[in-house]
Structure formats: C-alpha cells, structure tokens
Design a protein around this nucleic acid. Structure first.
Length: 577
RNA sequence: GCGGCCAUGGUCCAGGGGUUAGGACAGGAGCUUCCCAAGCUUCUAGCCCGGGUUCGAUUCCCGGUGGCCGCACCA
C-alpha cells in the first residue's frame, strides 16, 4: 500500500513517540546493549494501558459473547506448522542482482516459465533460474543463487538435537490443536467460540515503524466455529445493525453505511463475519480509536492468506497511513481439515438432525477372510475404508476404488475386487451427521491498536502563553491512571486529607496519581499529558464542608462532590462499576 | 537484504581534534501556598558500540548496532 506522509503526520508521530518514551509507555528493548529491531518493552504506563485494552477485549468476547478462553503454548513442534501450512507458506527464497543489488523473490522471477514456481525447492529454483537464463529484471545483470528465509523463529526442544520446534507466528493454531477439548467444554454445540490473548513471533526481514511491525508482538484472536451451512453467530445481529461503518469493498468505492445496510445490499455476505465487525467496532471505539479514522477494507482475492476465503481488515488512519489493526477472515474448514488429515485424529463433530431420518443406503460389507490374505497388513485399513464408502465407489467392472489413509496424512487409492465385499441395501436410521466445523476468525494486533489509541488520543491545546500543552484524551476505561488526587497546598492539613482520599480510592483497586509538588496548574498539566481523565483537589473549602473539586481533563470543567461518596462517584464517572 | 540521511543527559536541541560538553524542558530536595505548565535556591543526569588515524577522538575514517526515508518483503 502506498502511503502519504505529510509534515503534520511526521510531527504527530514524533510527538507521540517522544511522549510514549518519556511517560513510560514504550521503550525500545535492550537499549543498554544497542537495541534490537522489532522488539519493544512496555513501561509502567504502557503495561497498564495494554492490560486495560485487553480487559475490554475480554469483556466483550468472553464476557458478552460467551466465548471460552485459552492460553496455549508458544513453542510448537514442527508438525503443527506442517499441518497449518506455515512451514511451506512462510518459506521464501530471495535472489540478489550482482550489479544493482536489487532483491527479488526467486519464485516470482519464474512466473510464466514454470507452472508452479512457489512449490519448488531451493535446488530446483536454482536449476530453473539457470536453465531459463533469468537475469535481473531491473538492469539485466547476473543474479545470485537463491537464499532461503523463513519468517518463523526456529528452536529445538530438549537436550542434544532435541525436537524441531518453532515459536508460533499466530495464536490460532493453539486453538485448533486443542479443538477436541474445547468443543467438549463448549458443551458440544455449534456455534461456539474460543478467545486467546498472547504473543506471536515473526522474524520479519525489515521491522520498522515503531511498534507497527514487531518481531515479537501481542495478539488477541477469536476462532468461532460454525456449522458449514450456517455461519450465524448466537448474538442478536440487531444489536449492531445501526453501527456506522466506512467500507472499502474489493469491488467499488468506499462507502459509509450501517452494518444492517451492508448486509441488506450484499456488500457483506457473511452474517457471522458482519456480526464480528460490529463487536470489533464497539471494541475499537471503546478503547479510543477515532471512528472517523477507522474503516474496513475487503481483501482482494490475490491478497488473501493461504487459508482464507473472505476477509475484511479493520484499518486505522495513522501518521504511517492506513494500517491494519484487525483481520476478520473466513477460514472455512481449512485449519481443522488439515489437522484432521495430518494428525489422523477425527476432528469432525456430530450434528444431530432436527428429526432422525430413515433412508435406504447401499453399504459395502467387508469379507474379512478374503481381505486378509490379499491385503495383509493393509487389510484392517481397507475394511474400515469399505465401511465408510458407498455404492458409488464400485465401478462397472465390479471393482471398488477406495481411499486409504497413509502415515503422512495423504491417502492412497486401492482397488478392491468384488469377492472381498458384499454390496447390501439396508435401511438406516440416521440421527445426524459428522461435519468439520467452519471458522470465522477475528484477529487483533494489540500493539498496533495501542499505538492507534495513543495517536488518536493525542491532542494539544493552547496554554495561557500560547504554548502547546499536550492532552492525552484516553477513554477512562483504558487510562492507566483513573484519577489524580492533589492537595491545593501542602499545609493547613490539606495534604493529610488528600492522602486519606487517595488511600480510600487505592483501597478499592483504583489507580491514582497523588501529586503535591509544584503549582496546581502544573499538576493538572502533568495529569493531562499522562491521560488521567479527572483530578480531585482538596482545598480549604474541604475543611468546612467535606467536599472536593473534581476537574475534567477534556473540558477543564470543575464540580464539587462530597468526600463521603467519593469512591462510588469516581467509579461511576470512569464507567468502571 | 540494498541505497540515502542520521545518532550528544529522561525529552528536544547546541557544540566541537585537547572544553569544567552548553541550553531548554522533564525529574529530585527545599522555599513559596498559589484552581489551570508562576517564581527562587539547589541537586541528579549525556557524547550508541568496536576498530583505525593521532601525542591525544565525543569530534575525522571504517565496520557494527539502532532510527527515519525509498526499493524489496509484510500470508
């Protein structure tokens, strides 16, 4: 995506970057040792902000939508990613021009010269490049032999050579490999959803743009499982029908519609996906993303991940340009099917029919005494496959052609002669069917969302001298500090009263900022920059009527409230009760 | 990975082959006791790392690391 950078964007970015570092939101990791690209640490404020963002996420998906939560392993053995497709999809080969130093993907240079260059190995690529005499498309210079890189961090588990393993590039696979447990705990019903917060790792070639592209990042993923013919979430779609959206469909121009209209007009065809766009919008706006700088863009067919059939990205306008925060993808049964095949475990679920149905079916019944001598070790597998098959497997010559599973997850076709089975017509009562559930996945980049919240909350107002004063307008639910507590002056016992008020608020778990230093205006300004939504000031009047001043960050308005109800008042004002 | 520009306290900047490396803001202590960054005193804190040139390098050169921009990559 091409991005426009004007001066104002760069100014914003620099101001927010500086504030984030100064105020303890984000620090480049390992600065002591010169830093490392793609890694950031969250300081005290950043940690709290991140936790609050995650808290609202959990409140919506696990709380309101009733999904179950998982926390799965970060280090995964190789077979997980053989099944998921990441091992193949994440491996690419680069070549470099010896003259102009330009880089190209080896497979892209073979486009049109080979039917399927993406599937070639390193040696095959080298051979093909040489055979076709491929040169640099930029300058025609000679190109290097291909060098591989894999976007996954590899490691080994156990002593010595151990077992080949990788740091997960997404949390999703943890949900798929635990599917059987989760389905049982989800009370064996569709639809049901699983939510997971956690870290992911990608060995990006060139991480840049602060925390927009990290090598170690925080994600929040939901896998919602559906009956293949019924992509409809349990929640009531009417709840989000009026949600205003800016949409960029893969055909046509950007439009502004309600979610209900988008469904009616067929701009979004997938009801479950649409519902999740609704929940996602509420989440993003709730944590402080500006609705005017949020849009959903549908992926082009060519842009889609290897597993997806439809995908809408939630994007925010940042100083970096439009940036993906969320991907909501219809993954079909891709993942479960792959794990079903690679693991050899049956991951299908039983879905009862509304009414049991009786039907005549033609069954193949194995004749074991014929199968045994003929197929020997494979006899058991052949017998099982015969029972799974139906009459359509039997050809005109009476031979049955059936697939039997191999150890590597593939299948092999076997010809079975007529004497090995009986073809019978039986009346079967079927109460349901086994299906592989389909998946819709909303996947959130927490770090990017946090950055967006900082940029979109960042405002400046003119001070009395005309100087720019920063106000970080974080929504109270995510603000790291909920309330500031100040004595107007540190004498006449005002400080003692303020400390007491502060203690009361902290005692119920609220995060406060007690500050008695400098002028009151200075303390308000400090709190504004730290994003504290409101401050309480104990003044001389407090000693007479036990009331305090509450001052709002966004409006600078003030109001007097009694100390006796201060805890409930603050919770109410912050929307935390 | 490639090319261009860059690297000085927490932040933003100045400087310069031998300096007590300077300022502003921020922070600590004290005074002031003031409802929107007032003032005063005082303190803390810095030349990214490695090598080279040199009597001497934070300054010049090379390499590394990190940052920004462009190319490539970003499922």
């Amino acid at each position: 995506m091409k991005q426009d950078h004007d001066l104002a964007d760069q100014d914003t970015r620099e101001a927010v970057t500086s504030l984030a570092k100064r105020r303890g939101y984000l620090w480049p990791s390992f600065e002591l040792y010169g830093g490392m690209r793609g890694f950031y640490d969250y300081g005290p404020m950043g940690t709290a902000l991140k936790r609050n963002i995650q808290g609202l996420w959990l409140r919506l998906w696990v709380g309101e939508e009733g999904m179950i939560e998982l926390d799965s392993a970060l280090v995964n053995p190789r077979p997980v990613f053989e099944a998921s497709g990441h091992l193949a999809e994440f491996e690419d080969f680069l070549v470099q021009c010896a003259d102009c130093n330009a880089n190209f993907r080896a497979d892209q240079l073979l486009e049109g010269l080979h039917p399927n260059p993406d599937a070639l190995s390193e040696e095959e690529l080298a051979g093909q490049l040489e055979e076709h005499g491929v040169t640099c498309p930029e300058c025609g210079g000679p190109i290097s032999s291909p060098t591989s890189f894999n976007l996954m961090f590899g490691t080994r588990a156990g002593p010595g050579e151990g077992r080949e393993a990788y740091l997960r590039p997404e949390t999703a696979q943890g949900i798929f490999v635990n599917f059987s447990h989760l389905y049982r705990l989800g009370r064996e019903r569709l639809p049901f959803g699983v939510a997971q917060l956690g870290r992911g790792f990608r060995n990006e070639i060139s991480p840049r743009q602060g925390i927009i592209r990290l090598r170690e990042f925080n994600m929040a993923e939901v896998e919602a499982f559906f009956h293949p013919q019924k992509r409809q979430w349990a929640g009531d779609l009417r709840k989000y029908a009026d949600t205003q959206l800016t949409l960029v469909p893969n055909e046509g121009d950007e439009i502004r519609v309600t979610l209900g209209e988008a469904l009616e007009k067929g701009i979004m065809c997938n009801e479950a996906l649409a519902y999740f766009v609704g929940v996602t919008t509420r989440f993003l706006i709730g944590v402080g993303v500006d609705p005017e700088r949020l849009r959903y863009r549908q992926h082009l067919q060519t842009e889609m991940a290897h597993y997806a059939s439809d995908c809408w990205d939630g994007e925010a306008k940042l100083s970096y340009g439009w940036t993906e925060l969320v991907g909501i993808a219809d993954r079909g049964d891709f993942d479960l099917r792959r794990h079903h095949e690679h693991s050899g475990q049956d991951l299908r679920v039983f879905v009862p029919f509304p009414e049991p149905v009786e039907m005549e079916v033609e069954r193949l019944t194995p004749v074991h005494k014929e199968l045994g001598p003929r197929f020997r070790g494979d006899a058991k597998a052949v017998a099982e496959a015969l029972m799974e098959a139906d009459a359509s497997a039997v050809g005109a010559d009476g031979m049955a052609t059936i697939p039997i599973p191999e150890a590597d997850g593939k299948t092999r076709l076997v010809q079975v002669p007529p004497e090995c089975f009986k073809l019978e017509t039986v009346v079967e009562k079927r109460t349901g069917e086994k299906v592989l559930p389909h998946v819709v996945e909303p996947s959130f980049g927490i770090d990017r969302i946090l950055w967006t919240v900082l940029e979109h909350s960042f405002t400046q107002r003119k001070g009395e001298e005309g100087e720019a004063m920063t106000v970080l307008k974080l929504p109270p639910v995510v603000a790291p500090v909920t309330v500031g507590v100040f004595p107007l002056v540190s004498k006449d016992g005002l400080d003692a009263i303020a400390e007491e008020v502060d203690g009361k608020l902290r005692g119920v778990g609220l995060r406060t900022l007690y500050d008695a230093s400098g002028s009151i205006g200075r303390r308000y300004a400090r709190a504004d920059e730290a994003g504290v939504p409101f401050c309480i000031t104990v003044d001389h009047e407090t000693k007479e009527d036990e009331s305090v001043t509450v001052r709002w960050r966004d409006t600078q308005d003030q109001e007097r409230l009694p100390i006796s109800h201060i805890v409930t008042s603050v919770k109410q004002l912050a929307g935390l009760d």
